[in-house]
């Protein structure tokens, strides 16, 4: 279990209490400066809380002797694909973390191959990173994190610099990691359509949790989201507006298909 409790008095984060369970599939939304990146960096000891505690599998992040074990368990992927790839080939980059924790070379090769297979990048094993597309670079970064056999993966706006195709590549892989490899996902984004794909959504503002729940619960809070300077998925907004006009569509609609079905009865 990934247990996260935090009480922090500084502005960046303020009295946050979350509990993340094994296998969760969570997205965190919020505008720039809402504290979402700061929160992410607390999850693997890149930052330590001023007040409160963070527990990862019963280890406190403040316990210096546990830092490396926590970082191995909580993989991180960052926003800029260019600034997190360290080595000059894809395979060497995926091996980087494994080298750091002192894995034996033979086992390392197995892990690298496995990670490449999971992110579907086998054919790029020997490629130079600067020749890959943005989506591919992010998949390499994901592979580098999961090669450490991490149980949790924190992705800090991994799709912000990608085009729609790259975004889809990353989201597909993230879903697969959660479903097939049972890796707990904490995905930060400011794209609402993306957040809608997760099982749980947490909205942050000024370092506080404002909304938390299933996507259909969060995204129907249109007024709150607009106050937070965030978007609302178009289809949810349409559903709510039609609902107000007296048309009996389910107001928590997130999927286009569901909307089409409801509307078919009326048109």
């Amino acid at each position: 279990m990934y247990n996260y409790h935090k009480k922090d008095q500084i502005k960046a984060l303020d009295s946050i209490n979350i509990e993340i369970k094994n296998g969760d599939f969570i997205s965190i939304i919020g505008s720039n400066g809402s504290g979402k990146s700061t929160l992410a960096k607390h999850m693997n000891c890149l930052l330590l809380p001023t007040f409160g505690d963070i527990w990862v599998d019963k280890m406190n992040t403040k316990d210096k002797s546990k830092t490396w074990e926590i970082r191995r368990k909580v993989g991180m992927v960052f926003q800029n694909p260019d600034n997190q790839i360290i080595a000059t080939t894809v395979e060497d980059d995926i091996a980087f973390g494994l080298e750091n924790i002192g894995i034996k070379p033979k086992l390392m090769r197995e892990r690298v191959d496995w990670a490449l297979e999971v992110v579907e990048m086998e054919e790029y094993k020997e490629s130079e990173p600067h020749l890959l597309s943005g989506g591919q670079k992010q998949r390499v970064a994901i592979a580098g994190a999961i090669a450490l056999h991490s149980s949790y993966l924190v992705l800090d706006e991994p799709t912000a610099m990608l085009d729609p195709r790259g975004r889809k590549e990353v989201i597909d892989i993230v879903k697969k990691l959660n479903q097939e490899e049972n890796i707990t996902i904490i995905h930060i984004t400011h794209l609402m359509e993306e957040a809608a794909e997760f099982n749980q959504v947490i909205a942050l503002d000024k370092g506080k949790i404002v909304l938390m729940g299933k996507p259909e619960e969060v995204f129907t809070q249109i007024e709150v989201l607009k106050q937070l300077r965030l978007d609302v998925p178009q289809i949810t907004e349409l559903a709510l507006r039609l609902n107000k006009k007296g048309i009996d569509v389910y107001p928590h609609t997130l999927k286009v298909e569901d909307m089409v079905e409801s509307l078919c009865l009326y048109i």
């Binding site: 729609p164 289809i235 286009v256 089409v260 078919c264």
Partner: peptide, 14 residues
């Protein structure tokens, strides 16, 4: 692979 806005997609499906 460019995709449509959700409302446009909805109209096309209708």
């Amino acid at each position: 692979g460019l995709g449509l806005p959700q409302v446009t997609e909805c109209m096309h499906k209708l």
